[in-house]
Design a protein around this nucleic acid. Structure first.
Lengths: 202, 202
DNA sequence: AGTAAACTACACTGACGAGTTTACTTACTA
DNA sequence: TAGTAAGTAAACTCGTCAGTGTAGTTTACT
């Protein structure tokens, strides 16, 4: 790899780390240069402004997070187990450093510039990318009975976020792994209590 | 009212408004002074530092938000109606300017200083102040069947927050009043599907 | 080896913000 | 109505930070 490319990577890595730790606003370009073992001038040769660097990092983070493993409905398997698999995968995403890193930066920025929220808010992330189709198939299969699938999907994901993600994002008390298993079980129990089709043909 | 007291009020009002609009970090003391029609020196005569002013405003906001109308369980009334009343009241709180104002300032700060979250996170707010007792009474009355009451209360409140509060806080799409009524109905339907005691003595 | 592109250190500009100082004026109170 | 408590405008210190300019060095390619 050329030196120039390596420097670029170093700068991105340094900036990401610092933005994550302290927030974009509290990270100076001097700090980034130092952390990247690059001169400030080199930083500016690669990224015209701090804003450009910031956007580049957001893009970077999004790409890494977007690789979600789609889980499709299978009529043969136990529905509860399938939902548990989805919840576990989503919970892993919500807990991952990559995701939290991105979230901190993005949420901070969203509180400041509501335009950003409008711009990003529509991007479905994590299991929301396939959950609605999954539920639709389960409904078609008479395993579930749901009127408003979009809403049901949100109920599922919002609960995961509320218990797993927000506590980490804001620094509230974080559930232990044992509690987390419990939480996922309870969320699914509630979801099935509401939406399981009890008059299904056996 | 003495001029001195009036100035104090003006400064608090100006600071609150600006903190709300732009975040505490992006509001300068000069701006606050100007908005309050006070000289910068007067601002500093009332509040030693920006941090002190910030704390005073937090306190102010909390006091205004803390006045929650406690709703107690009544064995005579329909449980669903009672839960709806609680949800409506909570939703009104979550939508209120006072609450959103405070939340914006606090959440912004929490993303930056996780210590603040630990400090504030334990304060139960809104219906969380009485919901657990309410549910406990409903359980005692055999109307509900709940193992973990604290968790169930969170499930209830977290869903309200996810659908009503966070969209407003971050600038996502906000549900219409009609949708909101629907949302509350659905949340309660899910809650009752999970926790209603079907083997209750009639 | 020679050249161009990219890197480096470092000093610099210009803006902004927290908090202070000064010299002066206005408002309350005894 | 005299004195003091509080307010005012404006200039000032000191620190930080985004971004630039310069002169010299290193890297990579031919």
């Amino acid at each position: 790899m050329k030196l120039s490319d390596k420097k670029r990577q170093d700068i991105l890595a340094a900036a990401e780390q610092l933005f994550y730790k302290q927030g974009a606003e509290y990270t100076s370009m001097d700090q980034i240069a130092k952390q990247a073992n690059a001169s400030k001038r080199t930083v500016y040769n690669h990224f015209e402004t701090k804003e450009v660097l910031f956007q580049a990092i957001l893009l970077n983070m999004f790409e890494r997070v977007e690789a979600v493993n789609t889980i499709s409905f299978s009529a043969d398997m136990d529905l509860k187990q399938q939902l548990t698999a989805i919840a576990k995968q989503e919970s892993d995403l919500l807990k991952s450093d990559n995701f939290l890193r991105m979230a901190r930066v993005v949420f901070m920025q969203m509180l400041k510039q509501p335009e950003l929220a409008k711009q990003l808010g529509n991007n479905k992330i994590g299991c929301m990318r396939f959950l609605e189709s999954f539920l639709q198939e389960a409904v078609n299969n008479d395993s579930l009975k749901i009127d408003n699938i979009e809403f049901a999907a949100k109920q599922f994901v919002y609960q995961l976020k509320s218990f797993i993600f927000y506590p980490r994002l804001y620094g509230f008390e974080i559930p232990t792994p044992a509690q987390e298993t419990q939480i996922i079980e309870e969320i699914i129990a509630m979801f099935l209590a509401r939406y399981e089709n009890r008059s299904a043909k056996v």
